[in-house]
């Protein structure tokens, strides 16, 4: 993946200007530009990802399904979805199926961003020709309604405590837990999704999904809250390095 300009692609993160100003070097995934690194050096960004770092994954594939029959249909498509709401279920390809409600799933791709599963589901879901139609839920345009950030590092819970009233500390907010709550006075979905290294080291990480139209606002709030802990933006490579 060579460095590209975000405006050379049609799909654009709402915060690409902020990222570029921080020195982001972009690569193409899913028809959009995602920051690969910020030029600080691989070790520096990896260290930041272990301490406290923010990453913008907004152009990576993510989609929603909701309505009657959602879980049954997705299960029939090969997804593994457990019974509890507000819990994220990991799929074979590393995707997370976040069950927001009994009949609502927010599906986010793995950090590889291949879009394999999401693409397959996109093709599989079709309106039946005529009524009566089977109950199979309905796709929702989460790719474009929600910006997608990852907050990684051991200081993440402390940083969240400055902008979010839900206790997200690791001994109180389990792996896979979801909080649909208010963050910096806007609605947001937080999913705990630790990155496990090959050496067995567990690195704290959380997905944050929130209104795309407030992406610049939320990113700025997160950067402000992270400054106390020397938090900084990192690229996709640093997050992938956490799993090396």
């Amino acid at each position: 993946m060579s460095t590209i300009a975000p405006v050379s692609l049609k799909r654009r993160s709402f915060i690409y200007r902020l990222l570029a100003a921080e020195g982001a070097q972009f690569g193409e995934i899913n028809g959009g530009a995602v920051p690969l690194h910020f030029g600080a050096g691989r070790e520096v960004e990896l260290a930041a990802a272990r301490r406290l770092a923010l990453a913008d994954l907004s152009v990576l594939p993510h989609v929603g399904f909701k309505g009657k029959g959602t879980v049954e249909w997705l299960t029939a498509q090969g997804l593994t979805i457990g019974p509890d709401s507000n819990k994220a279920y990991r799929q074979a390809g590393g995707e997370l199926a976040a069950r927001l409600a009994p009949t609502e799933i927010f599906l986010i791709d793995s950090l590889a961003g291949t879009g394999a599963l999401i693409g397959r589901l996109g093709s599989a879901w079709k309106w039946a020709e005529s009524a009566p139609r089977p109950a199979q839920g309905y796709p929702t345009p989460r790719q474009d309604s929600h910006a997608w950030f990852m907050v990684a590092g051991e200081f993440a819970p402390e940083m969240f405590a400055k902008i979010c009233g839900v206790d997200l500390r690791r001994d109180r907010f389990a792996e896979g837990a979801i909080a649909q709550t208010s963050m910096a006075k806007m609605s947001a979905i937080v999913i705990r999704a630790d990155r496990q290294g090959r050496d067995g080291r567990v690195n704290a990480a959380y997905h944050v999904l929130a209104d795309i139209a407030s992406a610049e606002y939320l990113w700025s709030c997160l950067m402000d809250a992270a400054a106390e802990f020397d938090g900084r933006p990192v690229g996709l490579l640093a997050l992938q390095d956490l799993e090396q």
Partner: peptide, 14 residues
Amino acid sequence: GRVFDPERRTAMHH
């Protein structure tokens, strides 16, 4: 404290 005053911008804002 910090002023949390969310604002929404459209894709064409800039």
